[in-house]
């Protein structure tokens, strides 16, 4: 379980997050919705301990990670897989090297086991025949599926998605959202999805938290979003896509 308790964060004089509290239960999909630049991706980086808050706690399976050293964070980070907005694939490595890289780096597995896990992810992402290609030769949707495969290869409990459908065409977006739903049903995985596209929330999420001007203005099941009277939520429900 991931829990943020009264988290605040500032960059210089600029306040990014103001007293945010959030809980993500295992095996549930929670979307964090908000306009661009509001600090949604920052929340994911806080969950991984890539940045530390000015105040508050980030608790992963009962451990407050804000107090941990970088080396102590590594095993905790491996409980979560991260899919970055720009995918963050290593551009000098082929697809199967990208998928197997962190297994070779961090786990003491045999080469046979690594190859087996890589093949499993290649099949799951539907990328058979592309194993020896470089990321630059794949389409945006394919690169996203490789990034998801790389996040899954550690067999994490939870996957963090940063804008999973941003920049993708409608067909690729649908494929990615279907993939995320499948992960919950077949792999029993939880997920946190940061997005500014409200359709993504209705398509895959169980719960949604809405972030606006550094504060959490809504945190409940998706169906209750329509009951909110907050002007910002009313505007996004009518316009669907956040343009703020």
């Amino acid at each position: 379980m991931i829990e943020l308790r009264n988290v605040s964060l500032k960059y210089g004089d600029r306040e990014i997050l103001n007293n945010i509290s959030l809980t993500i239960a295992d095996n549930s999909i929670k979307a964090i919705l908000g306009p661009s630049g509001v600090g949604k991706s920052t929340i994911l980086k806080l969950m991984l301990g890539l940045i530390k808050p000015n105040s508050g706690q980030v608790i992963i399976d009962g451990t407050d990670i804000t107090k941990l050293k970088e080396t102590e964070l590594y095993p905790i980070r491996r409980k979560m897989g991260m899919v970055f907005q720009g995918n963050a694939l290593f551009d000098s490595m082929t697809i199967d090297q990208n998928l197997g890289f962190f297994l070779r780096e961090n786990l003491n597995l045999s080469e046979k086991e690594i190859e087996s896990r890589v093949t499993e992810q290649i099949q799951f992402a539907g990328l058979e025949g592309y194993e020896d290609k470089l990321p630059e030769s794949l389409s945006g949707g394919m690169r996203k599926r490789v990034a998801i495969g790389r996040a899954l290869i550690f067999r994490p409990h939870m996957i963090l998605f940063d804008e999973p459908t941003a920049g993708l065409d409608p067909v690729s977006s649908k494929k990615i959202l279907t993939l995320i739903s499948t992960l919950k049903k077949s792999n029993n995985l939880g997920a946190v999805i940061v997005t500014h596209i409200i359709d993504d929330v209705f398509n895959v999420a169980d719960h949604v938290a809405v972030l606006y001007q550094g504060k959490m203005i809504f945190d409940d099941v998706v169906s209750k979003l329509h009951e909110s009277t907050h002007p910002f939520i009313l505007s996004i429900l009518s316009d669907k896509i956040l343009e703020l």
Binding site: Y74, P75, R77, M82, G86, F154
Partner: peptide, 18 residues
């Protein structure tokens, strides 16, 4: 810039060592 260094940290590899 392309978050590859963040990815190394996120998956448990020390980017300075690597």
């Amino acid at each position: 810039i392309s978050e590859q260094i963040d990815a190394l940290r996120a998956f448990g590899t020390d980017p300075v060592a690597k």
